[in-house]
Design a protein around this nucleic acid. Structure first.
Lengths: 178, 178
DNA sequence: TATTGTTATACTCTATAACTATA
DNA sequence: TATAGTTATAGAGTATAACAATA
């Protein structure tokens, strides 16, 4: 089996072990970010939604849901919570009153900046052993992987794949129901 | 705000954006691995358990649960499923009949090798745009991060943190109950 | 009739807590 | 009384489907 050397030893690792290490670190980074944004009273899902709305205000819920890859019904509850906290607001489109355009409130804009600061502190924390050159090298390598696999830039990994017609390569081979 | 450049453009990214990219790629790698092992009729959690038992057979369920960072009750159902499929077996310790030592069956050993092949193919898939030098550089960078944050080498990221006495920095600031 | 958003339901996953048996 | 494992319960999170409003 390849990659039996311990992770920190600097020995050669096979592709399987390297991909595993990537998943392991990604999960670690994501979990720690979640702990940090919890201090702002929100979850990573909320943070991603605020960011998406801030980046492009005025879009319909469906447009945002489709970009983030989550179900419209899931978006409703996220928007409900953020609207209740006064960070986000729905504005009915007078042209087509079915649409609810999403906008940040002033408080929401402020909160989004706080999230940016938290994200930066989080990054410094996760990457603190790497100097500037190391970080640039890592960014270049990960950027190539992200481009190769067509990952959408601003979209949080916590959001699941689009439900309908998204799993053809992932057919369960047995009915594990218990 | 730092890191407004698109991911694939090669421009400079701030630490927040880089940590985000890491989380994004890690989630991608983990999800794709899950899809692959599904073709073997198991989940990533099963794969991690088989690997842990194969690496050190004969340990008690509690020892394994503690290493993987999951609840004993959760381990019971995982072991149940793998035992039902004939991949794993419990052996009562005659010395202390409360202990159930975990061992792979012959089929389980074979399945573990298949998992290794799937993991390697998965790694080749995820990393295919990187050549040998790139991979070595990436492994070195990620290895330093993993060592810095004391990530346990063989432990899958899908396993949640140990439940009791593990969340002191993650206190929810408001009672979001709805 | 088609589309946007909402509400309601069901299901999966996992944490917590009781319980059994061994010591 | 303490420990290993198990079973049972409950809770969170999320997918699916039905529904109301508007076009």
């Amino acid at each position: 089996m390849s990659g039996t050397a311990p992770v920190g030893s600097g020995g050669p690792v096979g592709p399987g072990a390297l991909a595993f290490l990537l998943a392991q670190l990604g999960a670690f980074a994501g979990r720690r970010f979640g702990e940090r944004v919890q201090t702002l009273g929100i979850t990573p899902a909320h943070a991603g939604l605020l960011r998406a709305v801030g980046a492009e205000p005025g879009r319909s819920q469906q447009a945002v849901a489709s970009q983030l890859g989550l179900f419209p019904s899931r978006l409703v509850s996220l928007v409900d919570e953020l609207e209740r906290d006064g960070l986000l607001e729905r504005r009915r489109d007078p042209q087509d009153r079915r649409h609810h355009a999403l906008h940040l409130t002033a408080t929401g804009t402020k909160r989004l900046r706080e999230i940016g600061r938290v994200a930066q502190a989080h990054g410094e924390d996760v990457l603190d052993v790497l100097d500037g050159d190391d970080r640039a090298a890592l960014a270049a390598l990960l950027g190539r992987l992200a481009a190769r696999h067509e990952l959408t830039p601003g979209v949080h990994p916590g959001y699941r794949a689009l439900g309908p017609a998204a799993d053809s390569a992932a057919t369960p081979p047995d009915g594990r129901t218990a």
